[in-house]
């Protein structure tokens, strides 16, 4: 614990994370010239900015985020989408990739459909609007959606998407990772199961060093397993 604590110290709300001269970043607050942690997480310092990377927490939408949502309601000119956040997110018909007649929304998206979309705007009282005008926005058919903690999403994606492309290359699955902690993946049952395992490993070991190698190892081992004649 001691040595691992030194490696990646966990900070607890109220703990001092920086003195004067440092700026409070996300997950921190300053009081009397000193900076304190506001969330349980890992301390991070970069160019005079101290932040705490949270280990847990809800997804709070931000403009431009790619999210995976489920349609939960429809109106004559919009759909209401659950994006796994505390705020309801409407998708207006004009923001969809189709030409939707007034009152004809059900022809394009039905309640229960899963979509890949983007956050168009978030105002100061956190009213969210979604858009599907981006290139990769679509209705997701087939495959499955798994949910992880939104705070672990950056690790699943990796630097410049390295982690997710590693999983895609090794398993042959198609994967979309939403910033809201929902991951859509499609592939044959076996590789989808292996990809799920890999993602669960990342979620659990998000703070680990050498995570990419551990994931590669896991996938390769799982792929190798059961190739030969099955017992029983």
């Amino acid at each position: 614990m001691q040595s691992s604590g030194a490696l990646r110290p966990i900070v607890i709300p109220g703990e001092a994370v920086g003195g004067p001269g440092l700026k409070p970043g996300p997950g921190t607050y300053s009081e009397g010239g000193r900076v304190f942690a506001a969330q349980l997480g890992i301390r991070n310092e970069h160019e005079g900015l101290v932040s705490v990377i949270p280990l847990n927490g809800r997804y709070i939408p931000q403009r431009g985020d790619a999210v995976i949502g489920e349609v939960v309601d429809q109106g004559p000119s919009h759909w209401l989408v659950d994006i796994n956040s505390p705020y309801p997110a409407p998708l207006h018909a004009t923001e969809s990739p189709w030409r939707v007649e007034f009152g004809d929304t059900a022809r394009y998206l039905k309640v229960g459909d899963v979509i890949m979309c983007h956050v168009l705007s978030v105002d100061e009282i956190k009213r969210v609007q979604l858009t599907m005008q981006e290139r990769e926005a679509r209705r997701l058919t087939g495959g499955m959606v798994i949910e992880i903690s939104p705070t672990k999403v950056p690790r699943v994606i990796g630097k410049q998407g390295s982690m997710v492309s590693l999983i895609m290359d090794l398993t042959g699955c198609r994967i979309y990772v939403g910033q809201n902690g929902r991951i859509w993946l499609d592939g044959d049952d076996r590789s989808a199961a292996i990809a799920t395992m890999a993602i669960r490993l990342i979620e659990e070991r998000a703070q680990a060093v050498g995570l990419t190698e551990a994931v590669r190892e896991l996938i390769e081992r799982e792929k190798g397993r059961g190739r030969g004649p099955r017992p029983s």
Partner: peptide
Amino acid sequence: LADAGVPMRDL
């Protein structure tokens, strides 16, 4: 509350 990741000043 801390376990839930809710931002707060202190325990």
